Simulated scan of single mutants.
Amino acid sequence: MRIGELARRAGVSTRALRYYEQQGLIRSRRSANGYREYDESDVRLVTEIRALMAVGFTLEDARPFVDCLRSGHPSGGSCPESVAVYQRKLAEIDDRIRDLLARRAEVAAQLTSACPGCLVTRRGES
């Protein structure tokens, strides 16, 4: 399939596909007229990349997942290298949550100090 069809089927721009190719995440062949040609399996690779990016992974994070799919595994997350990326990402998220909770506590303390009668609530609470 040509780049436009892959873009349409995977829900990305042709520019994104060219970038993924430049980064070595997907590969195309060139037809006689110079057009990029992709395999059906590239739809799955691009879908995996997009799903990972949607939850905060980088393109470099996606590389082991793509390699896992290329090696024939049914899931990009079923290889040890992918599991390691999942674990690292969870640790990063946990660190950010701890940081945000500490910041929230500091801001709440500043509010309480500045406005002793003000009620500190979480969004959505009354």
Rank of each mutant, 00 (worst) to 15 (best):
P80N: 09
T47A: 09
E48H: 04
E48V: 04
I49Y: 00
L59W: 06
A84K: 12
P74M: 09
R70K: 11
Q87E: 14
G76W: 11
G24Y: 08
L69R: 05
F65D: 03
S71E: 15
S41T: 06
R36W: 01
V46Q: 01
S28G: 03
F65Y: 14
Y38A: 02
T47Q: 08
R29C: 01
R29N: 04
S41H: 11
D39T: 04
D42W: 04
D42Y: 00
G72Q: 05
T47H: 10
V46C: 02
R50N: 09
P80D: 10
T58R: 00
S28P: 00
A54P: 09
V85E: 11
G34S: 07
Q23E: 13
L69A: 04
V55M: 14
Q22T: 13
Y38W: 05
E37L: 11
E48I: 00
L25C: 12
Y35K: 00
D67G: 06
R44D: 03
R88G: 12
L69V: 02
Q23G: 02
A32I: 13
R70L: 03
D42V: 02
G56H: 12
A54F: 15
A32N: 13
A32R: 13
R29F: 01
Y20N: 03
V85Q: 04
G34E: 09
V55C: 15
R27C: 08
V55G: 10
A54R: 13
R88D: 07
L69I: 08
N33M: 03
E37I: 07
Y20T: 07
V85A: 08
Q87W: 03
M53V: 14
E48A: 06
T47M: 10
R50F: 04
S31M: 00
R29S: 13
V85I: 12
R30E: 11
Y19W: 00
V46W: 03
N33L: 09
E37C: 02
Q23A: 04
G72D: 05
R29D: 14
R36F: 00
N33S: 11
E21K: 03
R36I: 06
S75T: 14
N33W: 01
V55Y: 13
S75D: 14
L69D: 08
R30H: 08
G56C: 06
D67M: 11
G24K: 04
V46T: 05
E21M: 02
I49E: 01
P80S: 14
P64C: 07
A54G: 14
E21D: 11
R18D: 12
Y35L: 01
S75F: 12
S78M: 04
S75Y: 15
L69Y: 04
D39Y: 06
G76N: 03
S71Y: 10
A84E: 15
I26L: 09
S78L: 01
Y19C: 01
A54I: 12
V66Y: 01
L25Y: 05
R18F: 06
D39W: 07
S41C: 03
T58Q: 07
G72S: 01
V43F: 06
F65T: 08
V46N: 02
A51C: 15
P64M: 07
E40H: 06
Y86R: 13
V83S: 10
F65C: 07
G56F: 10
R27T: 12
R70P: 08
S75I: 13
